[in-house]
């Protein structure tokens, strides 16, 4: 058992090293090396690339980033914060070791009575201030860039968090909603996807353009998070949040719900599939109710695809019978029954 495990981890660690060594160049190469899945005229879910857009076994750092904000954030963490915090921790450790050795009773039998030194007290108050100011500069830049608004004509995807699945609505393409549930383990493995992260229907978006992501919660608070895109935004009921997502290259990027939302909080993963624009549009046309026409709908009587979020009791995850639904129904002010 122990040996098997150790061997397994050794391979994990090797893979981790390889991936962390991978540069953007290597990533680009991987992207082009993607198997050409799309049959002419039909959308076929993209095969994920090992180590791209998903956690790496045994990794000790961030997932490789595929957005400008992510790259900047990762740079700030790896090049600014990590050296500083490592240096501080080591400094404290070295000082501790030094006093332990130098001022042990044997080495220094007579304690000094020094309990003040204004100069040094001022220095160790001001030095951290300077270090923090140094951190604040890239930090504020990163923050500001995260609040840049979407440009004209940006694609809007509305992400609705349900207990316990995600809905992706495309209001500019006919307003259809894609309901996304976690795949069971066997199906995920059969598809060559990581378990606990694979979903039946992905959020498909074009690569290389800014996307306006809007999140809202249908029942409780959820959080839409994709680590390899440095993206996290809470989905709060009764309140629409918005943030720009930019994916540099085609690929599958996995994420998970990151705000405790009830029993299956750990079982509503996110898979974002970025495609070239034309492939994306092809996908849109294959969705029921998907159109590429003018987004603004002025005719009231035009039959529209009702977003799932507007349908009470949306059929989402195939929930096994559980006490929950009865409880929820019973807790609600009884509508017609009672």
């Amino acid at each position: 058992m122990g040996i098997r495990r150790a061997a397994q981890y050794a391979t994990f660690a090797g893979a981790a090293l390889m991936v962390s060594a991978g540069t953007a160049l290597a990533a680009a190469a991987e992207a082009t090396a993607l198997p050409e899945d799309a049959v002419v005229g039909g959308y076929v879910p993209m095969k994920p690339t090992e180590g791209k857009g998903m956690p790496t076994p045994g990794a000790i750092g961030f997932q490789e980033q595929f957005s400008p904000i992510g790259e900047y954030g990762q740079w700030m963490h790896n090049a600014v914060l990590m050296p500083i915090i490592t240096a501080i921790s080591l400094l404290v450790l070295l000082l501790l070791l030094w006093v332990v050795v130098r001022y042990r009773t044997k080495a220094n039998p007579k304690p000094s009575r020094t309990s003040h030194n204004t100069l040094i007290e001022v220095v160790w108050t001001l030095l951290p201030v300077l270090v923090l100011l140094g951190i604040a500069v890239p930090s504020m830049r990163l923050l500001a860039s995260q609040y840049e608004t979407a440009p004209e004509g940006a694609l809007t995807v509305k992400v609705t968090g349900y207990q316990w699945y995600w809905g992706y609505t495309y209001p500019d393409y006919g307003g259809f909603e894609v309901i996304s549930n976690m795949l069971p383990e066997d199906e995920a493995l059969a598809n060559g996807e990581p378990t606990q992260l694979a979903v039946d229907k992905r959020m498909v978006v074009p690569a290389g353009v800014p996307i306006r992501i809007q999140t809202i919660g249908a029942d409780v608070i959820h959080s839409f998070a994709v680590p390899s895109l440095w993206f996290k935004l809470d989905a709060v009921p009764g309140r629409l949040n918005e943030k720009v997502m930019f994916i540099e290259e085609p690929g599958v990027y996995y994420g998970q719900c990151m705000e405790l939302c009830g029993a299956r909080h750990g079982f509503m993963p996110i898979a974002v599939e970025a495609l070239p624009r034309d492939k994306f549009e092809q996908w849109v046309l294959e969705q029921p109710g998907g159109t590429l026409g003018e987004p603004a709908m002025t005719d009231v009587n035009m039959p529209v695809q009702e977003p799932e979020s507007a349908v009470p009791g949306a059929a989402g995850a195939p929930r096994p019978d559980s006490a929950l639904e009865e409880d929820v129904d019973a807790a609600e002010p009884a509508p017609t029954a009672a």
Binding site: L240, P295, P307, A310, P312
Partner: peptide
Amino acid sequence: RFDGNVANGLPWTFRPMQTTS
């Protein structure tokens, strides 16, 4: 842009009649 939602348990349909203006 206009967006409409209905809370869980409210049997209404509610949607904007224009997506954007």
